Amino acid sequence: MDKGWATNFVSAGLVGASYSIDGIASEVLRSAGLFALSGAVTNQLAIHMLFEKVPYLYGSGIIIDRFESIREALKTLIMEQFFTPEKIESFVQSQERTIDLTPIIEQTDFTPAYNALVRSVMDSPLGGMLGMFGGEAIIGKLKEPFLEKIKLSTIEISQSESFMSALNTHLHQGSSHLTETIESIVVSRLAELTPIMIKEMLHTLMKEHLGWLVVWGGVFGGMIGIVSVFLL
């Protein structure tokens, strides 16, 4: 059973039980039960009004009524807390020294570069002379050593100070564009949300904790009820 309704039943049970006994105990039990039931029901109604529109009750259904404001607040929260230009810049700086293109270069097929080299050689005056000695077949023996050398050279270039400096400069220049891109993605995704989706999302997130509001409303209401018996 839902903890909120369980609190209501326990509170009502205390009121019912108070009529089976006499004296001050009856008054304490009845007052505690009534105040507890009042607190629990009031909190339960307030929670219901938060998500659902109740006729003639002004302010109910605020999540649906304030849907646009909530959606804008979500966008502001995401952009200001997670994707500020400063935080993106800080992330880029933290990644500067960890960029390693070696794995990518190792898996890259440099055969097109070799083929372009062969075409250049064969189209040059040297190509005619090589044709007398077997043409491309002679150059073909150099393919594997060439591919290995060009990979090593490319890795060396990617690790050079000048290359890393140029790459990091480009990343810094692109951080502002990255912020704009992220914001456009957030805005487009939030635009897909409907009032019902927002309501269900918030209700799912808060359901467990909202139930405890009813329980504590009953507990504190009961305590106030007991105190009131001795004060009046």
Rank of each mutant, 00 (worst) to 15 (best):
F67S: 13
S60A: 05
T204P: 02
E89S: 14
E148F: 03
S20I: 13
V28G: 02
I196L: 05
V121A: 12
K199D: 03
M223I: 13
V219H: 01
T102I: 05
F9A: 06
G39K: 00
M132K: 13
S153E: 14
T154V: 14
L117K: 06
M129K: 11
D123T: 01
I99M: 14
E192I: 10
A32M: 04
S20E: 12
T169S: 14
K53E: 03
G134W: 02
E200M: 07
G128Q: 09
A46Q: 03
L232W: 04
L37M: 15
L117N: 11
P85D: 13
E200N: 13
K3E: 09
S94G: 10
Y56K: 11
A191H: 10
E148M: 07
I47P: 10
I226R: 07
D65P: 05
H209Q: 08
W216G: 11
Q44H: 12
H177I: 09
L117T: 00
T204A: 15
K143L: 07
A40P: 00
S26D: 00
T98L: 03
K75D: 12
Q44E: 13
W5L: 14
E156C: 00
I99Q: 05
R189V: 13
D22M: 04
E52P: 05
V215G: 10
S20P: 10
P125C: 02
R66W: 06
S11M: 15
H209A: 10
F35M: 03
L101E: 01
L171V: 02
E144D: 15
I62P: 06
E86R: 11
K151M: 00
G127D: 02
G131I: 04
S175M: 08
E86D: 05
F9N: 04
S26E: 06
A12G: 14
I105R: 02
T194W: 07
W5Y: 15
I104D: 13
E27Y: 05
F220L: 14
L232Y: 12
G33W: 06
E68R: 11
A36D: 01
V219I: 12
D109A: 04
F82L: 15
I155P: 00
S153F: 07
E80C: 09
T179Y: 08
G39M: 00
Q173D: 14
Q95T: 00
F146L: 05
K3P: 05
E86T: 10
L193A: 07
S60P: 07
Y56N: 07
L171W: 00
V15T: 06
F9C: 10
A32V: 04
S162W: 00
G16M: 14
I70T: 12
G33M: 10
G33D: 06
H172V: 09
H172Y: 07
L213M: 15
T42I: 09
L77R: 12
L231F: 08
G222C: 02
L50P: 05
L190R: 08
L45H: 03
Q159K: 06
S188Y: 01
T98W: 04
V215Q: 10
V219G: 01
L29R: 03
G135R: 05
G135E: 10
F163K: 03
Q81I: 08
L126D: 09
M223P: 09
L202C: 09
N8G: 02
V186I: 14
T181S: 01
K149G: 10
G135Q: 04
N43R: 02
R71S: 06
D22E: 14
A17K: 05
E68F: 09
A116I: 04
H177S: 15
I105F: 01
V54N: 05
A166Q: 00
T179W: 04
E80P: 04
D2M: 08
